[in-house]
Simulated scan of single mutants.
Amino acid sequence: MCSFSAFLYNGKEKNMIIELANIKFNVLDFKPEKLIVRGKYGNYIREDVETDVDIKVTSDEIDRSRIEYESNDQEVCIETAAIRKIYETLLDFDAFVMHAASISVDGRAYAFSASSGTGKSTHMNLWKRKFEGKYQVVNGDRTIFRRNEEGRLLACGSPWCGKEMWESDVMVPVQGFCFIERGLVNKTRKLDTEEAYFKLMNSTLIPGDSKRLMKQMDLMGWVSENVPVFVAEVNMDPEAADVVYEAMK
């Protein structure tokens, strides 16, 4: 975790620099002491580096967060507004945040998305037991995905990792996506491009401006055409990880 001195330069407080998916954000509104208490940004903070983009929230964006999260804590509202802006700005760099956990096995990332309470974390735990000593969790809740210059989609760590705090500051080529549903018998189905597109879109934040929305739609179209997407009906038995892995590998 960063110490407070990391945010001082010649005795003056400087802006917070956060690196996500190899993109350096100069976040102008975060107060370092607030983030240090929470601790979750420590692995992504950078010092004295050139930044790629500034993140500055407006009063309207802060008010929107206040209404959305029903909070009167000004710092919380600033932070949530800035996070939303980071999410939307990622699209300018061929990247997006998805409500998905992801785990790396043999240098390939497997991403899992599910409705709240469906068992995404439980399924991740099955994979962790199956590949004990051979896996790395990329993120447990909100993975960043970025298309690189070679046309490969990468799963990237982020500080927004859920209550389990599963995260790693890594970038791993994506093997595939899987939408987890509850079932009595473990089985998987590969989606066609159209169904995959709508599944992916529904698991991402819809940006507030039309230009970025078009960018997101284009990017999701590319992902659905170039990365395998599955639906899996699974139970809580260890066999569930075997069935899904065999389908996706």
Rank of each mutant, 00 (worst) to 15 (best):
C161N: 14
A111H: 00
R152T: 12
N148I: 02
S168R: 10
V172G: 05
K163N: 12
D192S: 11
I180M: 13
S203D: 11
C156Y: 06
F177R: 11
L153T: 07
P207M: 10
Q175G: 14
Y135I: 03
S203L: 09
V170S: 05
I180H: 11
E164T: 11
N139V: 03
R146Q: 08
G119W: 03
N202W: 03
I206C: 13
G133K: 01
R152Q: 10
Y197W: 12
S203R: 09
G117M: 03
S121R: 06
S121L: 03
D209A: 10
F145S: 01
G140K: 06
P207N: 11
L205F: 15
K128L: 04
D192H: 08
T122E: 05
R147L: 15
P207D: 10
G162T: 06
E167S: 15
H123C: 02
F131P: 03
A100L: 00
S102M: 04
S115G: 13
H123G: 04
L200K: 11
G117R: 07
M201K: 13
L213C: 13
G176F: 11
M171I: 09
G176P: 07
R108C: 02
Y110I: 03
E167F: 06
G140R: 02
K199C: 13
V185F: 10
T118M: 07
F112A: 06
F177Q: 09
N186K: 11
V138E: 02
C178S: 14
G151Y: 04
K215R: 15
Q175H: 07
T204W: 08
K163Y: 01
L153K: 05
M171L: 09
V105D: 03
L154T: 01
Q216C: 10
N148H: 07
A196N: 10
G107E: 07
S116D: 01
D141M: 00
N139S: 02
A114C: 03
G140M: 04
W166K: 07
